[in-house]
Computed example of a mutant assay.
Amino acid sequence: MFIFYQNGVLSYAQVEAIKTFVLGFGIYAPLIFILLFTLAPLIFFPDGILALAGGLIFGFAWGSLYIVLGALCGGTLSFFLARLYGKAMREKLAHEKLMNFQKSVKKHGFMMILLLRLVPLVPFNIISYSAGFSTIRYVDFFFATLLGMLPGVLVYANIGAQSLAFGSHEFYISISLLVALVVVSMILKHRVKKRLEAYEK
């Protein structure tokens, strides 16, 4: 983390800074990118910025793969930090909008995480930490995260990959997909909120 800060990578949200830093490691660039994604939750760095950078650096296909791997590693780290340090960590994160779905995860853990992951408007890290504080099984958390984040990953990776072709037909298609994702996310977010409230009653 000290090295990342010294290079100004995670201290400010600039895709170009991430690209320059990661490519500086040559053949190890994919590993460094995945490591960035893994450690970013420790400082609540926006995962969307890293996802865009992944598409820009590695292209759509490889970028999507590395984003998924990095996000799974980061989500797993957050999950187990919350589970291992429990109460002490919850107090330190009290200022964050942590979610409480203790009751809902008993029977609907997989589905709740899946729905929340489908909503990019809900911070990725908040879901991971909140899941760690709950009683959900890790295997349910893992596969719900994997499936739920795919639409968002593909959209962000595509935008990053097309960013160099600004003004092209493909670029506008990628922007349209992002708008569609946001609209669908807003609808899903409202429904998930109502379902969570219903489960907690």
Rank of each mutant, 00 (worst) to 15 (best):
F2Y: 11
F2A: 07
I3S: 04
F4C: 02
Y5Q: 10
Y5I: 05
N7M: 03
N7W: 02
A13M: 02
Q14V: 01
I18C: 04
T20Q: 14
F21Y: 15
F25E: 06
A29V: 02
P30H: 06
I32F: 05
F33V: 04
F33P: 06
L35N: 03
F37R: 15
T38R: 11
L39M: 12
P41H: 09
L42H: 10
I43Y: 07
F44Y: 13
F45L: 06
F45N: 01
P46N: 08
P46Q: 08
I49S: 08
L50T: 08
A51I: 01
L52Q: 10
G54F: 08
I57Y: 05
G59V: 04
F60D: 08
F60R: 14
A61M: 10
A61C: 04
W62Y: 11
G63V: 00
S64G: 04
I67Y: 00
G70L: 02
A71P: 09
T76A: 02
L77I: 00
F79N: 02
L81Q: 13
L81R: 15
R83G: 01
R83D: 04
Y85D: 03
G86T: 07
G86P: 05
M89T: 09
K92V: 03
A94F: 07
H95C: 06
E96K: 15
F101R: 15
S104Q: 13
S104M: 06
V105I: 08
H108T: 00
H108N: 14
M111E: 05
R117D: 01
P120C: 00
V122G: 00
P123A: 03
I127L: 01
I127C: 04
S128A: 10
S128R: 00
S128T: 03
G132P: 02
S134A: 10
S134Q: 08
T135R: 14
I136P: 11
Y138G: 05
F141S: 08
F143W: 15
A144S: 13
A144Q: 10
A144N: 09
A144W: 07
A144G: 09
T145Y: 00
L146K: 11
L147M: 11
G148C: 04
V153D: 06
V155E: 12
V155M: 09
Y156N: 07
A157W: 10
N158V: 02
A161S: 14
A161K: 13
Q162L: 05
S163F: 05
L164R: 14
L164Q: 14
F166K: 08
S168D: 03
H169T: 10
E170T: 07
Y172C: 08
S174L: 09
L177Q: 15
V179A: 14
L181N: 13
L181H: 13
V183Y: 09
V184F: 13
V184K: 14
M186E: 11
M186G: 14
K189F: 00
K189Y: 04
H190E: 12
H190A: 08
H190T: 08
R191V: 03
V192P: 01
K193A: 12
K194Q: 12
R195T: 11
L196F: 09
L196R: 14
A198V: 07
Y199F: 13
K201Y: 05
